[in-house]
Amino acid sequence: MTGTDADSIEDLPPSAKLVFKVLEYNGSLTQKQIVNESMLSARTVRYALERLQEIEIVDEDIYFADARQNLYTLDEQAIVADGGPDEACCAE
């Protein structure tokens, strides 16, 4: 999907932008932790994470404290290439 207009954070749905901000403020989190922090449903968070992974903004790793879960982290290099986190947020 790289190389299209849908590759930037600006083009994502609001739920994905919120998940992005939660990860930006809190660092690496599991899906369950993102659900608790964002107050979104687990299904919505899962969809948002899929969208963020499609544009290669979020990395998924094994959560060693509980191998049944994954740990999600923002890819700092991708964020810088996309114009930085400040441009990714909604207009105020």
Results as ranks from 00 to 15, higher is better:
Gly3Asp: 03
Gly3Leu: 02
Thr4Ala: 11
Thr4Phe: 06
Ala6Arg: 13
Ala6Leu: 14
Ser8Asp: 08
Ser8Val: 14
Ile9Cys: 12
Ile9Val: 13
Glu10Val: 03
Asp11Arg: 14
Leu12Thr: 07
Leu12Ala: 09
Pro13Trp: 01
Pro13Ala: 06
Pro14Cys: 02
Ala16Gly: 08
Ala16Asp: 05
Lys17Met: 06
Lys17Gln: 09
Val19Lys: 07
Phe20Gly: 07
Phe20Met: 10
Lys21Tyr: 03
Lys21Met: 10
Val22Tyr: 02
Tyr25Gln: 14
Tyr25Gly: 04
Asn26Leu: 08
Asn26Gln: 12
Leu29Asn: 05
Thr30Phe: 03
Thr30Leu: 02
Thr30Trp: 04
Gln31Ile: 05
Gln31Ala: 08
Gln33Thr: 12
Ile34His: 02
Val35Phe: 00
Asn36Gln: 11
Glu37Pro: 00
Glu37Phe: 00
Met39Gly: 01
Ser41Lys: 03
Ser41His: 01
Ala42Cys: 07
Arg43Lys: 11
Arg43Trp: 03
Val45Phe: 10
Val45Ile: 11
Arg46Val: 02
Tyr47Asn: 04
Leu49Tyr: 05
Leu49Ala: 06
Glu50His: 00
Arg51Gln: 12
Arg51Ser: 11
Leu52Trp: 05
Gln53Trp: 00
Ile55His: 00
Ile57Gln: 05
Val58Cys: 08
Val58Trp: 12
Tyr63Ser: 09
Tyr63Asn: 14
Tyr63Phe: 15
Phe64Arg: 01
Ala65Asn: 10
Asp66Lys: 15
Arg68Gln: 05
Asn70Arg: 15
Asn70Glu: 11
Leu71Gly: 09
Leu71Pro: 15
Leu71Asn: 13
Thr73Ser: 15
Asp75Val: 06
Asp75Ser: 08
Glu76Arg: 04
Ala78His: 05
Ala78Thr: 13
Ala78Trp: 01
Val80Met: 12
Ala81Val: 02
Asp82Tyr: 06
Gly83Arg: 13
Asp86Thr: 06
Asp86Ala: 09
Cys90Leu: 11
Ala91Glu: 09
Ala91Phe: 06
